[in-house]
Structures are given as C-alpha cells and as structure tokens.
Write a protein that binds this DNA or RNA. Structure first.
Lengths: 340, 340
DNA sequence: ACTGGCACTCCTAGCCGGGGAGTGCCAAAC
DNA sequence: GTTTGGCACTCCCCGGCTAGGAGTGCCAGT
C-alpha cells in the first residue's frame, strides 16, 4: 500500500470526523495538499474501497471510513494531539482538589466528559486488586453492627448487619482486633480463605456472632459492590448532530448496567503492556455498540487497579480523545500513588 | 362548567395520552359513551378551548390538552388507578431485600423507573432532617484519620483528613468520645453550634487537632454531600415515540445536576399536608422543562426526610404514575420506620 | 503514472395536487 | 334552548415528480 493512499485515508477520516458527511475526491485533493488531482485521488479511493477501508453509502456519494479504516488510522496514522497547556493545567488543578477516592472518581468522570465531549466511564479501583488497609466495627445498637472496610486503594465499603446476640463493648473490640489481625494487609483475593478460618479463632461465646460477621465480610468482599462505576456526560450522546438518534435507547440502557460497562472498559491490560485500548464498532462484541467506539485506559499506582474510558460514535476525534484519556489516567494514577 | 364538558376534557386527555395524537370530536363521541353526537362535542370543545384547557396545533386539527387542562384533569378528573396485586407484591418483595440505605435508594429508583416507564429520581434522606446516631474516628496512619458519620436515617458519610500532629491510640479514642458526647442524638441543623464549641472542650495538647476535626465535621454536615440523589431509567426518555427528541439534551444534562434535580423534587411538603405533588410543564419554572411533568412525593419515617419522584413528558399517564409513586413512597417510609 | 473531460448515477430539496381529517357554522329537530 | 345533521372550508400529510448538484468511473491524452 502506497504512502499516498494512506494519506488519502487519513484525509478521509479527518474530514469525515470533522464534517460528519461523506467526503469526496475533490475535497480531499483540495483541502489536503497532496499535490495530485482529484482524479488520482479517485483511483486511490477505488483501491481503498476494494481493500475494505472505506465505503460509499450509495453510488455517487463520497466515502466513509469503515471500522477497518478507523482501525488503520488509529494504529498507524493518528498522531496523538497532546493537550493544550491550559487543559493540562485545568486537569491538574481540578483533580488536585479532590479530597477522597469518591471525589477523585466523580471529578475524573466529569473531567473526561468535558475534555472529550463524550460519555465518560470510570471504574472504582477493583476490589480484586486491592488489599485490606483497615476494618472497623461500629456498634449502632446492642445488636446492630456496622462493618467498614477501607482498602489500600482508598475504597470504603460499609455494611450493616444484625448480630445474633447482644454484644458488649469489649466484645466489639475483640472482634475488631480479630478481623484486623487476620485480614489487614491481605489482598482481597486471599481474603475468603482467611475469613473462613475466623470462626475457629474466636472465643466460644462469640462463635455464632463471628460466623455471622464472616458471612458479611465475605459478602462485602465478593458481592455486588465488587465493581463500581461512575458515569458522566450522557448528554453528550446528543451531540454530533444526534448521530445516535436512532440507537440512543440501548446505549442509555447500557449506561445503567454495570456489567455492560465493565465489559466495555474491558481487560485493557490483558497480556500486552499497552495501557490504552481503542475498541471500534463491532470490536466491542455487543450488538448495540456497532456504531460506538471506546477509548479506555488502565490506571493505578504502579499496577493497574481499575479502568477509565470514554464512549462515543465511531466517527470521533481519536487523536484528541486518546490524548485526553491517557493524560487523565496518568494523572489519576499519580494522585493514587501520593495518597497511598 | 358543565359536567359533560369535563367528561369531554377527560376523554381528550386520556385519548391523547394513549395515542399521542390530537384528538377530534368524532373520536371522542364514538369511543367514550357520552350519548351525544360529534357536533355537540364540537361545541363543548370550542368552549374548552376558549377557557384555555385545550388547543389546536392548527386549524382543522384535533385538540391537545394545555397545561391548564392537565392540571384540571389531575386535580379533579383523574381517578387514581391502584397498582395491581402483582405489582404491589413485586414492590414489597424487591424492597424488602434491601440491606442498607444505599440499597434501598438504588432499588427504589429502579422500581419507580420500571413501574412508571419514566425517569426516576430519589433523594437520599436530607441531612437537614437527620440527627447524628454515631460518629466514628478511624486512624488510617499516624497522621491520617477517617471520620465516619452515621445518621438516624441510615446515611453514612465518610471523610478522610490529615491531622496536624501524630496521634496515639488514646488520642483517637478521646476525640471520638468527645465528638460523640457533643453531637450524638443532635439534629444536624443544630450541629454547627455544637461543633463550634468542640475546641474549647479539648485537652490543650489536642486543641489544634480538634479544630481541624471540627472543620472536617462542619464540612461533612453542610457541604456538597448535603443532598444526594440517585437517578434511574434515563433510557425511558426515548420512549413515547421519542417525544423528547428535540429537547433531550437539556434534560440529560439536568439529570446530572443535583441542584436542578432538587429543585424539581422541590418542597413537596411545603405548608400543605399533601404528600404528593404534581408539577406540570412550566409550573416547574425551569425553561427546559416546559414539556415535562414531575410527580413527586415525600417519604420518611413519620416526618418527611426526603423526596422521590418521576419525570416524564407532560402527556403521561397521571393516574398510574401517581399511584405508583405514592405506593412506593409509602412502602419506603415503612421500611425506614422499621430500620429506625 | 497522472490528469482533464465527460457521461452517468443517485441523492436531495422543492413543488404540486389529491385525499382526508377535523373544524365552524347554520338551519332544522327534539 | 340544547342538540343534531349537513356542508363548505381549511390545512396537514403524503406521494410523485422534477431540477439541481455532488460525486463517481472510465477513457483518452499527456
């Protein structure tokens, strides 16, 4: 494949993203200084179409990139546009003000949505990749307890439950000591085993309570709260001249389904060391997202503990979006590092 | 105003809601057994239009209810359709499974969204109407502390902060005792005063730490976390043949703005003892919501501690929606009562 | 290998006219 | 005096049609 053909493809992608209209040979020849005539561009276009990178909505219309075309663009042609100094500074300032993990996550979603003009999705640090920093047991009433778990990634999960018997202050202290001894510092993936042996270690009088506590602990560690995500910028779906007009419904639905969102953010780090993934159109393997692209990145202090990303139409500004997601992911990682 | 004229108005509202198309005199005369001819209905319609309850999109089209028309319908004509037994049972079962306040709130939003096919909004119990049940101080590292506040309405707010000096275990215990002594049982509206006097009560060595703690407490009580809302069912905005097609953007934006949502849920209980409010079209006093109706209800154990509601097009099924919101609000109140 | 020219395709926007739904009014009937 | 059937009228909606234009593919010439 010719160098010039690649240039033509780039021109088509860029123009199409900018105008949202099929782009013709004349426009390409004129607006991008290729030094050749429209007729030549036409020949290249015929080749690109044959090879599956672009297609025509109908005879005698301009060309539109296919998923394959976008893919090639992202992999080889897109020169990442770094954020402007002002944007960089805004990111830093806005995130630096965050006071805890919740705040970091919500601010991150807003920031991503604003920078990219797309829908932003941020996963809380996965419990799978976190370790117990501290467990707190609070007695709300003689029989009602609250368990608070704080992880080294800053997540705070809390859970209330009923104790099978009334507990004195000493009992609560003892239980707190017991669970912290057993679990503090342990990665949550190892927790179930440790939790299993809790009951044996307790004083006979506390055994039933301990086993209730163990159930709650286990539940906290592996249950519904395991993955959490925050979303912002849904209104951006109506941008771009309502591109999603027809298929907006399923996307709005998906945004309220953690499972789908997690699938979209996906295993960015799987195998390869690449921290950033772009999934375009049907690469997402979800029927409703055939016109949707996802730009996602892992983040975390050192190791990846979670993912964040952005979701938009396949015809989006990849270079800009990639730069934004990468910058934000990096900076959030830094912040987590500091707070460790 | 004639009884029959009211019947005609009801017919128009009901048919318009069902079909989403302007309704004509013939349809009214036929489908609703009024025992009069289309010509008579026409006369009544002319009157209703004159009085501002309905209007024509253009000459020679059917009639559409105005905001004033919907209002009359809701106030005097709509017979609330109680939920079916199956629905009732589903509500009870689904909510009974909730394990804590967070769970209650998210389940409630989903339930409302599903029952009404609209967007559901649920406000967490307002801190203004809650009292401190317990304050917990957890030491994460010698200088890093976490404050956890639990209210009598079940809300749990947590906040991390840096202490100005290293603290021993005894210090933490002492501070915890101090703040609980001063605040436990107090309504949060009274808290600021009590917090103000905290520093004086502390041991000299702990004064600086206490005042830092006081700042954090104050912040927790009155800050950004004061009002929280959960939303579900945004995808329902695309129902109804995309009624919102044109104005979807501002509504999606509003759904991410707590301030706007709170304004919409509004002071349902203000003055009057009515627990349920319907605000139609420009009664909302927000420009973008001129085609939107809100059905909201207060909830809480005994007194109202928060609001929940549903948001949809002005042409919505008021009787059904009102019944659903009322039923859910009542049941959530019951649950909070039990958990008190 | 590139270019200008040219015929061809097909979409789009605008115009026109018929059909239909619904109205308002009037005179007659109950 | 309220109700009714009749009737002329208005205006939207829809389909078909046409003119215009953008873009293509191909070919012959450079």
């Amino acid at each position: 494949m010719d160098d010039r053909k690649l240039e033509v493809l780039r021109a088509i992608v860029e123009d199409y993203v900018a105008t949202q209209e099929p782009v013709g040979s004349k426009a390409v020849a004129q607006r991008h200084a290729l030094g050749v005539s429209a007729a030549t561009v036409r020949n290249d276009m015929a080749y690109l179409e044959e090879a599956g990178y672009i297609h025509q909505p109908h005879t005698s219309a301009g060309r539109i990139p296919t998923v394959k075309g976008y893919r090639l663009f992202v992999d080889r042609l897109g020169k990442i546009k770094p954020l402007s100094v002002a944007e960089r500074r805004a990111v830093h300032r806005f995130l630096a003000e965050a006071i805890d993990l919740d705040d970091v996550v919500t601010r991150t979603t807003r920031l991503l949505a604003q920078l990219t003009h797309q829908v932003a999705v941020v996963q809380y640090p996965s419990l799978n990749r976190s370790a117990v920093r501290h467990l707190e047991l609070v007695s709300l009433s003689p029989q009602r307890l609250m368990l608070v778990m704080i992880t080294d990634t800053g997540r705070v999960e809390q859970r209330q439950f009923e104790a099978p018997a009334e507990l004195g202050e000493g009992d609560v202290l003892e239980l707190r000591r017991l669970i912290n001894e057993q679990l503090q510092g342990k990665p949550l993936t190892d927790a179930p085993k440790a939790i299993g042996s809790l009951t044996e270690l307790a004083r006979p009088e506390l055994k039933t309570t301990t086993s209730a506590l163990a159930r709650v602990l286990l539940d906290t560690v592996v249950s519904r709260t395991e993955e959490r995500v925050a979303v912002a910028g849904a209104a951006n779906l109506t941008r771009n001249g309502g591109y999603f007009a027809g298929s907006l419904r399923p996307i709005l639905e998906a945004l309220e389904e953690e499972v789908v969102l997690m699938q979209l953010l996906g295993r960015t780090d799987a195998g390869s060391g690449a921290l950033l993934t772009v999934r375009i159109g049907d690469e997402n393997e979800i029927a409703d997202f055939r016109e949707t692209a996802v730009v996602a990145a892992g983040y975390g202090p050192g190791a990846v503990v979670g993912h964040m990303g952005v979701l938009g139409p396949t015809r989006m500004d990849y270079p800009g979006t990639i730069a934004a997601v990468r910058a934000v992911a990096r900076y959030v990682s830094e912040i987590l590092e500091q707070n460790r």
